[in-house]
């Protein structure tokens, strides 16, 4: 059994807005084993990014607030650390790649300076060493003429190359955990394939654990060992990757997988669609968040929110109904 490198327990994050309190994350418990890749899948507004930002304490407060929970990383609770302590972890032992490589790089600072910044802070090396290391890192992510390109600015790089720079930066301090927040969403498919391949190669070389946030079940299938599906601020299903795609058990996961057109499929079948819209998280959730859109919904679903329960080896689901038989669990 692999060691848990990160253990999140009962995380709750809320945002105060003029319309009321938004319950973005409602008691998420999730762990990450050493060297594994966890895919965190869900649609916009389901709380997947907020979960990760909360762990790194990057939630702006106010309006955001982490109300409850723990995030144990190497024996200490990230959520209880002082600002000074968390800064030592962030960008160093745990680093993050953001979705949009254009807005996450500083447009008026050249790439060399931006690359060197975290290394000077976390590794305590000289600027000259940082420069040499930057060149090595850029070469390892496949940027040609890395030495010359250090003095270039972000706008002189293409989208795919900027994302490579982001990855090189995130790897610069030898992180144990890499959190990738939709790193390929803004990119074209051929460039996306390049980036996914790059991360798979670097994972083998460096042996870090990865949390890959995505809304794309296809990308998740190509990179993750284990997948957690989020909906309405809850994790509603969690399973090893093959198990999840072979036996999706939550009605939402099932709907999501069926609503994708399959590239191998010949005939023109009608797409399965989940009617309705994702929930607005303005009330304290009591019922199952998916109940209004669920075709298996029954009385119990409106009264009590099901907990994440084990239904097999490496497979947990939060649903009152067994979707294979249609009866209650």
């Amino acid at each position: 059994m692999a060691e848990k490198i990160l253990d999140v327990q009962g995380l709750e994050t809320q945002f105060k807005t003029p319309e009321g309190i938004v319950h973005a994350v409602n008691g998420v418990s999730i762990h990450l084993d050493e060297g594994e890749t966890l895919g965190l899948v869900g649609e916009s507004g389901c709380g997947k990014s907020v979960t990760m930002l909360s762990i790194l304490r990057l939630i702006q407060s106010p309006p955001g607030q982490i109300v409850a929970g723990k995030a144990i990383f190497k024996g200490s609770d990230l959520l209880a650390m002082s600002q000074e302590e968390i800064r030592q972890v962030r960008g160093g032992q745990i680093s993050m790649i953001f979705q949009d490589p254009m807005t996450s790089l500083n447009p008026v600072m050249n790439i060399g300076k931006q690359m060197a910044e975290p290394m000077l802070l976390h590794l305590g090396i000289t600027p000259k060493e940082a420069r040499e290391r930057s060149i090595k890192l850029l070469e390892s992510v496949g940027i040609p003429r890395a030495g010359e390109r250090l003095k270039d600015y972000p706008h002189q790089y293409s989208g795919g190359m900027r994302q490579r720079v982001m990855i090189a930066m995130a790897l610069s301090c030898n992180p144990q955990i890499l959190i990738a927040d939709e790193p390929t969403t803004a990119l074209d498919v051929t460039i996306q394939a390049q980036i996914v391949d790059l991360v798979i190669r670097l994972r083998q070389e460096l042996g870090m654990a990865i949390i890959w946030i995505t809304h794309d079940l296809g990308v998740a299938a190509s990179i993750a060992n284990r997948i957690a599906v989020m909906y309405g601020g809850f994790i509603i299903e969690e399973a090893a990757v093959k198990e999840l795609y072979a036996n999706p058990s939550h009605p939402y996961t099932l709907g999501l997988i069926n609503s994708l057109p399959q590239i191998q499929r010949k005939g023109r079948q009608r797409l399965y669609s989940i009617e309705g819209m994702p929930p607005i998280l303005l009330q304290t959730p009591k019922a199952c968040p998916f109940a209004p859109r669920c075709r298996w919904v029954r009385e119990k679903c409106w009264q009590q929110n099901p907990m994440l329960e084990s239904i097999g080896e490496n497979h947990k689901v939060a649903c009152w109904v067994d979707t294979t038989t249609g009866s209650e669990r």
């Binding site: 498919v189 051929t190 996306q192 794309d216 296809g218 299938a221 093959k242 795609y245 994708l260």
Partner: peptide
Amino acid sequence: AIPVPDPT
């Protein structure tokens, strides 16, 4: 390059 929702 298309991501396919099928790990196998």
